[in-house]
């Protein structure tokens, strides 16, 4: 691999050219969406399609954020943020603890429990959506944050990941903590948790995006527009019947919806790489 990077002269130019072309191809639709969000509805539908920014940037975004189509976008952003944070943080806490129990405590049927958790990998939301809906409805959690978060909060993947990590932590460390007088929870908080922070950061990125991108579940269980999340909200902005869609506002919303996950990736990536570089253990 390094040979490719170090190549000098023509080859390097070719490689760069290829990469730049690739980036252009990927970025062009996003650029188009941005252009579409800065012009007026009329300009957009009139051929030729505009390829340069228009003058309605502020107006369109203002309209999207504060009035929207069904509900203001800031509200949907807030809902999505709460849901994504709730899912990511909830998943991490629960998996940290369940992995801790499975690795460090000898209780009856320990392995059975581990495999039960593992089996839930076969049951994603889409498969269990009807019973889940019924349970959530019976609990009266439709149109609420807890209804959005709780059914998605258990995570076999994260539990498995932390379990694998704990298994690599030498037993002597737990024993040393015991000799030092630390109880199990103290050991967990003082030693395991700081040691797993790299894993936590990496998982947070993945899980935040997973939560943010949830579409089917919020679509099914939120009927109140105030509880709409942004990913499903974009679809809701499409008018039914013969109304004309307000494309510039929809495009502005789509770009706004992309922003938080991008920010999380960009900000956490630094932490992530830093964590990977100074490996401890």
């Amino acid at each position: 691999m390094s040979g490719m990077v170090e190549k000098k002269g023509k080859a390097a130019w070719l490689v760069h050219l290829g990469l730049i072309l690739g980036i252009l191809v990927v970025c062009f639709p996003i650029y188009l969406a941005f252009i579409a969000s800065t012009v007026s509805s009329g300009d957009l539908v009139r051929p030729p399609m505009p390829l340069l920014p228009g003058e309605h940037f502020i107006a369109n975004y203002k309209e999207a954020l504060f009035s929207g189509v069904n509900t203001p976008v800031w509200n949907m952003l807030l809902n999505s943020t709460i849901m994504a944070l709730g899912i990511a943080i909830g998943k991490i806490i629960i998996s940290l603890l369940s992995a801790f129990a499975i690795v460090y405590f000898r209780f009856p049927l320990r392995n059975v429990f581990f495999w039960l958790i593992f089996l839930t990998l076969m049951l994603p939301v889409e498969v269990r959506i009807v019973p889940t809906y019924e349970v959530v409805a019976n609990f009266g959690m439709l149109n609420s944050y807890s209804g959005l978060i709780l059914p998605l909060v258990a995570s076999a993947t994260a539990t498995f990941l932390f379990r694998q990590f704990y298994l690599t932590v030498p037993d002597e460390l737990a024993e040393a903590a015991r000799v030092d007088g630390a109880g199990p929870m103290r050991f967990f908080v003082d030693i395991l948790l700081p040691m797993s922070r790299t894993n936590i950061a990496a998982l947070f990125v993945i899980l935040f995006i997973y939560g943010w991108n949830q579409y089917l579940w919020p679509l099914l269980m939120t009927t109140d527009p105030d509880m709409n999340t942004i990913v499903m909200g974009i679809k809701q902005m499409f008018p039914s019947g013969d109304d004309l869609p307000n494309w510039p506002v929809i495009m502005a919303t789509a770009l706004l919806a992309m922003l938080p996950p991008v920010l999380v990736v960009v900000l956490m990536q630094n932490l992530f790489i830093k964590g990977l570089v100074d490996t401890e253990k």
């Binding site: 030498p170 002597e172 460390l173 024993e175 040393a176 903590a177 003082d190 030693i191 700081p194 040691m195 401890e280 253990k281």
Partner: peptide, 10 residues
């Protein structure tokens, strides 16, 4: 005192 020292790495 443990064979592999068992120091808390962080």
């Amino acid at each position: 005192v443990f064979q592999n020292y068992a120091l808390y790495p962080h």
